[in-house]
Simulated scan of single mutants.
Amino acid sequence: METKFFSLEEIAKNDGKDGNKTWILIKNNVYDVTDYLDGHPGGGELITEWAGKDCTKAFDDAGHSGDAKKELKQYKIGELREEDRKQKKPAVPTTSSNPKEDRRSFCSYLTCGLCA
Rank of each mutant, 00 (worst) to 15 (best):
K17Q: 11
K17G: 12
K17Y: 13
G19H: 09
G19Q: 04
G19K: 10
N20W: 01
N20T: 00
N20V: 00
T22D: 08
W23C: 08
I24L: 01
I24G: 00
L25F: 09
L25D: 02
I26Y: 04
K27V: 14
K27H: 15
K27S: 14
N29L: 00
V30Y: 10
V30F: 12
V30C: 09
Y31V: 01
Y31T: 01
D32E: 06
D32R: 04
V33Y: 14
D35L: 12
D35H: 09
D35K: 11
Y36S: 01
L37G: 02
L37D: 07
L37Y: 06
D38L: 11
D38W: 09
G39P: 07
G39M: 11
G39V: 13
G39C: 14
H40K: 04
P41H: 15
P41C: 15
G43H: 00
G44M: 04
G44L: 02
G44E: 06
G44P: 01
G44I: 01
G44W: 01
E45L: 08
E45G: 06
E45C: 07
L46K: 07
L46A: 02
I47S: 07
E49G: 13
E49V: 09
E49I: 10
W50D: 12
A51Q: 03
G52P: 01
G52T: 08
G52N: 05
K53E: 07
K53M: 04
D54L: 12
D54I: 12
D54V: 11
C55Y: 13
